[in-house]
Amino acid sequence: MQLTVEALQRWIINTNEKMQENKEYLSELDQAIGDGDHGHNMARGFQEVVNKIEDNSFEEAGSLFKQVAMTLISKVGGAAGPLYGTAFLKASEQWKEKTTIDQETFGKGIEAAIAGIKTRGKAKEGDKTMLDVWGPVHTYVTNQPLERENLKKTAKEAMEKTKEMKAKKGRAAYFGEKSIEHVDPGAYSSYLVFEALAGSITNEGDANG
């Protein structure tokens, strides 16, 4: 599998489309166990990202993801800004000067992103956060050939599992036991990120056009 810079750029553009489509639903999830602004924040943040990147062509993946990260850090007011921003910033360091990314390099980027999320959020897997999607996706990416349907399935199942978890981080932790039976909004937006990635690769796992 090879992801070209164009395919990666399309990933981010697809992610924005998913955030716009699911804006209300994300905020609904956040209303239940948070402050209700996750959909609004993600939709605005990714729209700003797309405004910055869509008319540019990037020669290598590092500068593309640095731009994505810095825009999210600047434009998203809630926890999603520093968390997604740090994630993409750490990934950008692994993808620096790469014009195409193979699966191993992609996995290294995701691994660095996860380390960044953990440092920034002081969270671990099982705390009912975005990490509960990024972790299983990383395991999948490092162990199996990257394939559209399986990637989507991995992210979706991981997201659904957060429903049974008790929140230990963020505003949701204030809800304690009451956070159970709700999907974590950050896990859902992360599922959308990887669903968008799945849409940017073909069934054979190669970059789609």
Partner: peptide
């Protein structure tokens, strides 16, 4: 004040 303010302070 609250959690994400800390993340942005650190950043």
């Amino acid at each position: 004040d609250l959690g994400s303010a800390f993340m942005n302070a650190e950043l």
